[in-house]
Design a protein around this nucleic acid. Sequence first.
DNA 1: GATGAATGAGGATTCATTCAT
DNA 2: AATGAATGAATCCTCATTCAT
Lengths: 221, 221, 221, 221
Amino acid sequence: MAALTTPVPELTTTRDAILDAAERRFAARGFDGVSVREITAEAGLKNQASLYYHFANKQEIYEAALRRGVDAIIARLAEGAQTMRPARDSATVARDLDRVLDYLIDHSDVARLIQRAGQDESSLVRGIVARVVEPLYTLGVRVLADAGGPWTNDELPHVAAGLYHLIFGYFADASLLEAVLGEDLRGPAAIARQRQFLKSAVARLLGIDPRTVTLEEGERL
Amino acid sequence: MAALTTPVPELTTTRDAILDAAERRFAARGFDGVSVREITAEAGLKNQASLYYHFANKQEIYEAALRRGVDAIIARLAEGAQTMRPARDSATVARDLDRVLDYLIDHSDVARLIQRAGQDESSLVRGIVARVVEPLYTLGVRVLADAGGPWTNDELPHVAAGLYHLIFGYFADASLLEAVLGEDLRGPAAIARQRQFLKSAVARLLGIDPRTVTLEEGERL
Amino acid sequence: MAALTTPVPELTTTRDAILDAAERRFAARGFDGVSVREITAEAGLKNQASLYYHFANKQEIYEAALRRGVDAIIARLAEGAQTMRPARDSATVARDLDRVLDYLIDHSDVARLIQRAGQDESSLVRGIVARVVEPLYTLGVRVLADAGGPWTNDELPHVAAGLYHLIFGYFADASLLEAVLGEDLRGPAAIARQRQFLKSAVARLLGIDPRTVTLEEGERL
Amino acid sequence: MAALTTPVPELTTTRDAILDAAERRFAARGFDGVSVREITAEAGLKNQASLYYHFANKQEIYEAALRRGVDAIIARLAEGAQTMRPARDSATVARDLDRVLDYLIDHSDVARLIQRAGQDESSLVRGIVARVVEPLYTLGVRVLADAGGPWTNDELPHVAAGLYHLIFGYFADASLLEAVLGEDLRGPAAIARQRQFLKSAVARLLGIDPRTVTLEEGERL
DNA sequence: GATGAATGAGGATTCATTCAT
DNA sequence: AATGAATGAATCCTCATTCAT
């Protein structure tokens, strides 16, 4: 089939360029803070009409960018969930966390995009979030529930929410915290520390001895 | 004389009504997602021009609303910081946390407002945040540093950021998490659980036995 | 009568302060370029409402400022016209010119105000001009007609218009011409030269030997 | 193919229509007296947004309209300046004047536009004038200086300013003067008289015998 | 696939003005 | 005589979107 053998014409297709631009801008300013013109320009297009060849409207761009990011994270989480179904424990959760962190570190815009999406109360964004982000949340809670820990069922939602904020929040306002704290939070060293801190914090929250989780895997980044 | 006894004509002045409206709307939709018209209407004014009698522009409204909230929280934190200077320990931090939580629970919009403000990268919002929110962050880090705990100096900023996200994040997307988790997160019972969870989580993060912090003060809310 | 003996309460009454401010601002920016707020501020008042105590609306301020200036000039012209009715000649015109110039030099804003008023085509300004400025124009043409000169009746309106532009135009864009020509046009020396030039030019236009008009009266400034 | 022979769809492009409208309106009411809506309507556009596709903002429209007019006049002046460099005398100036007058008579709006621009003191307009109108002024002064005449170097700027006001002023308030003088000033006969008057006046100002300049070229218009 | 041009609706802000004090 | 507060209408400009090419 022609379709199967068509050589990829460009490495980054226009559609991807638009999504990349959208991801960056929406992460930085939110849905309402970004204009279609802005995305167009950042994607290297000359006219806003070009954008409407690839997407029906602004919301669809937003949704596609969000979905691309969410799906990538879900894939990381699901990977662990599938491989070792029966024997899930808190050590497994730590490994899942590592995989997700690997992605978020390289795509901090996605982390911000998702967190901002969750906060917005416009019905438009809410609709998109319900469709796109919910699966991630649901999966996250399930992974956590499988892990066990010192929490009652009543408390579990609070723990889930807490972990989510702990992990994603770091990327959401890192640049601001840097300014306030006067420390680098996004360089390799800081990222490594954050990874360590998160694992340790997660361990504490899950009631595991932090030391059992600290050194394994030997990641340094 | 009537003139001498004139009863205060309105309990809430127009300026306060505007700030209340702004707090609610900006918390829900962010700076760019809220129109001046919207604030005007929610403040009960008939015309946008009225609003410009009290504030120079949209940014000033935003800044004033943000400042009002931040100052209230700073007051809570500073209260504890002043009273018992020498003997600060993790128990003191727990009490500080309680006071801040008391406020945030009653003013969850402020929590959302602050968190959203910290995430925005528009230079406009950044400028305002630098002026208004920074003092809160700085104070927060100081309170934490005084508390001690199992963290090195390198790790402290990460702990501070983590606690911030843990505490404020809960209010930022509570309504969304409710939808996903299918549980009430903002009713009195949920709020009480969150308070418990936070104290316990903070204790774990600070390396204290969670039980020492759990039941004291007998708060119920 | 009380009215006759009322002591003047302030040297510059508020009304005059408003007119002074209006004269300056309207001269610089025209009717549409000046806001009521601007006049209020320049007049030293704190609130625009104060202004409406003295004048019914913006147009009335404009008209009053214009009239004050026009009447002063008319007074200068009429002075000469009344004193020596029968013997009017071109020397008399030169003396009239001198008197008007004396005023315009000290009140260059009035010159600009009048010239700008004449150019505006808004029906509002036109109405005011018809009422206020026309008498000045009419008087000017009569003075000129009395003077005689090498022009036919057909040409006279063109001469009148020309003289008007020659005299008033100088003040209208002096500050710009200064920038372009790189010369001082509003200092005492330049004003003296302009007076000389105008007398000489008027003389030439009226067909008189310029030298007969140059040195008389010994004015300096 | 139709595609190859497509006749030019509109003689006046949208951009030109906007400039034409702007020239007329700004000439009549000045920068502040004209609304963008007004220009839009007069240009035959249905929406103000259309206008912003062609120009960045109101100032740019103003500047473009002004520049178009100024450049046309400069072209007329430069034409004469180039052809007969060595033998410039007052007769040459008279011919230059004729060429400029030819243009101004057909484009009296440009004359008004330029004169009004020169009078405005708003920093915005001043900036535009500095960029656009200055070259015309500079060229005009040079042409005049080349012509010689009975004036000293000190007096020359005053003569230049005077000629400018004499020539451009006529168009600036012709409609008002018509009303006051009760004579036609913009019909063919009046225009011919004004041309005659100007040549004669310029001759007198330059110290030439008016008769040498009056009848040559036989223009009547 | 991409662009020039156009458009209705809405954005923030300023306008002149009024009313009660 | 002056001011604080409020208001409807208009300001300039940007929004997301569409259509023809």
